[in-house]
Design a protein around this nucleic acid. Structure first.
Lengths: 135, 135
DNA sequence: ATATAATCTGTAATTAATACAATTATTAAT
DNA sequence: ATTAATAATTGTATTAATTACAGATTATAT
């Protein structure tokens, strides 16, 4: 996505379009493999010589707050991040450890929510073996 | 649950019934509120004067390996543990931060799993407001 | 009872994430 | 365009969850 487009999105969501945030968001939009903060840091440190690890965390928190990015808690060790904020589930392959998206509508999720509880958001995590590793 | 019963369960699952593991598992069976390792440690340190934090982690890992306990990744900060290994979802209240169980059968989950992916296990995490905090 | 193997303990190390203060960049007003 | 005000970035230091490790202890099987 072009930098001007991202700037417009940021302004619409009320966060300042700094070079660092644009870089983090661009990376997340391009790489749809739910990277960790450290993965993003290492990738961006290669391109931008000065890029603090703290800024990665700050930018990610700002993006999450703004509703442009969501966290994925499928790994216990570290948080993962996803620029796709639409409803979908996450499948982690026990063999290659890769995370795949799959379709789950919020209608389906809300129907699972017990009565008396006010549903705000939901997530579905599956583990198993992905098609590539099934053979 | 009586200590002899727990001992029998442990032996059936191929793990040694040590005093520490029995204490951890008893606690988890009694407290169904998905405690963290630290919560378990503090509770048991009150009762047993010598109880290493490392042993809590070792015991929990052994119990998880044996299939008697499952981890709950609903909090990013720390892992939670649950002695209920039957299929169910988890709901975290945004106000009181308490975690509630709710019914979700594995049939329902497997039906959500995309074709080509071999389903092994699944978890459903919801957040929102619990009945107690809804008023 | 004893030998063997597994477990426990306590400290040290690791690692993800945050706090903080000084510097730098962005925004808005002149 | 300049400049003042505000917010973000940087780098270091810190926190907190978890693991590594080695010596002491406990459980199991002979």
């Amino acid at each position: 996505m072009a930098e001007t487009e991202i700037t417009a999105i940021f302004e619409k969501h009320g966060i300042r379009p700094t070079q660092q945030r644009i870089a983090v968001y661009s990376y997340l939009l391009a790489q749809r493999n739910h990277p960790s903060a450290d993965t993003i840091y290492r990738a961006l440190a290669d391109i931008y010589p000065v890029f603090s690890r703290t800024t990665i965390y700050n930018s990610l928190n700002a993006l999450v707050q703004a509703g442009l990015v969501r966290t994925v808690n499928i790994c216990a060790e570290e948080q993962r991040f996803d620029a796709d904020v639409d409803d979908h589930g996450h499948f982690i392959c026990e063999k290659c450890r890769e995370i795949f998206d799959f379709e789950v509508s919020s209608d389906v999720l809300e129907r699972l929510c017990p009565t008396g509880y006010r549903f705000s958001k939901g997530d579905v995590f599956f583990s198993g073996v992905c098609p590539g590793c099934c053979g």
